[in-house]
């Protein structure tokens, strides 16, 4: 919709009488963004995540052309100085550059896990909650079985069975991460299904699929996204744990967990090798947790 001359952008976004569906949606997004930005902790989280994304994209530029896998055995375990801002590791690779490139691996894993986990969790949970009966029992008992295993141990088992590598680590983490999402989606769906607006949709002849996709999933999505953001820290830590144990990214790929693992043997004499990637894991996990808390406040259905 074209902006009128007399209107500023913020007036256009904040009007209580939008003239098109797009303006209404833009206004809703604008209010959501404003309430995230108004929350200092959430804003800090958002900035950290945006920085992570920026670092991942700009890694070659920020690393000043230093390759993350170029070895320099004369300069191994070199302390931080002007040439190597975060020092070098046991093969003389620049830790600053490796940390930046490690953001790419972390971001890719987090994205892939989300893309796998959310649809599976939503599908299982909404179907179980909406259809009920034996479908509900079967789907939820399968979920219970997955929940019965300790997450890292199950991920380890899958990663070991599938073989080491980033893709397999993603699959292993996803296979262990989806059950809580199915649980949340089911609980939400059971509540939503009793609402009058679902009865109204049924009376208008909406099919089961239409009710699921158009009415129930959009309402489940907000709590699932909040849960996902809060889970990100756990996913990053599991990924790092798999990397630490040698089941995640394989050398020479720069991955934070594997970097911590490599620094373990020299942690007392060359502290920077394990500390820098550890700090990176810490900051990113913290960012996701802060953002998750903020999103929970914004998406809280009770506030609308």
């Amino acid at each position: 919709m074209i902006l009128q001359q007399s209107q500023t952008l913020s007036q256009w976004l904040q009007t209580d009488a939008p003239v098109s569906a797009r303006q209404a949606a833009a206004g809703k997004t604008y209010r959501a963004i404003r309430s995230i930005v108004a929350n200092p902790a959430a804003l800090a989280g958002l900035i950290i995540i945006l920085l992570l994304i920026a670092v991942a994209f700009l890694a070659p530029f920020l690393a000043r052309g230093i390759s993350p896998i170029a070895q320099d055995l004369d300069n191994r375990l070199h302390a931080p100085d002007l040439a190597h801002w975060f020092g070098t590791d046991e093969l003389g690779r620049d830790i600053y550059s490796r940390t930046l490139y490690g953001a790419r691996v972390t971001l890719a894993m987090v994205l892939l896990v989300s893309v796998i986990v959310v649809p599976i969790g939503l599908a299982v949970g909404t179907l179980a909650g909406f259809l009920g009966g034996w479908i509900d029992s079967v789907l939820m008992r399968i979920t219970d079985i997955f929940l019965a295993f300790p997450r890292l141990v199950l991920a380890l088992a899958f990663a070991a069975a599938l073989g080491p590598g980033i893709e397999n680590a993603v699959i292993a983490i996803s296979l262990t991460a989806w059950p809580p999402y199915a649980r949340i989606a089911r609980a939400e769906t059971v509540t939503i299904s009793k609402s009058d607006f679902i009865s109204a949709a049924k009376m208008q002849g909406a099919s089961t699929w239409r009710i699921l996709f158009k009415h129930i999933v959009p309402l489940c999505l907000s709590s699932v996204i909040v849960r996902l953001t809060l889970d990100m820290a756990g996913i990053i830590l599991t990924a790092a744990g798999l990397g630490f144990l040698g089941l995640g990214a394989q050398p020479p790929t720069a991955e934070w967990g594997a970097m911590v693992s490599a620094g373990r043997e020299v942690i007392l004499d060359q502290w920077w090798v394990a500390t820098i990637p550890g700090v990176a894991i810490f900051i990113v996990s913290l960012g996701f947790n802060l953002l998750g808390d903020g999103l929970r406040d914004v998406f809280d259905p009770k506030s609308t």
């Binding site: 609402s195 109204a200 208008q204 609308t304």
Partner: peptide, 23 residues
């Protein structure tokens, strides 16, 4: 036969806060 019924009868619910989809 919800689909056939829908052109025949419709319902208005008690709670206007719960009968409209919030999103």
């Amino acid at each position: 036969q919800a689909r056939e019924n829908s052109r025949l009868m419709q319902m208005v619910f008690q709670d206007p806060y719960g009968s409209l989809h919030p999103r």
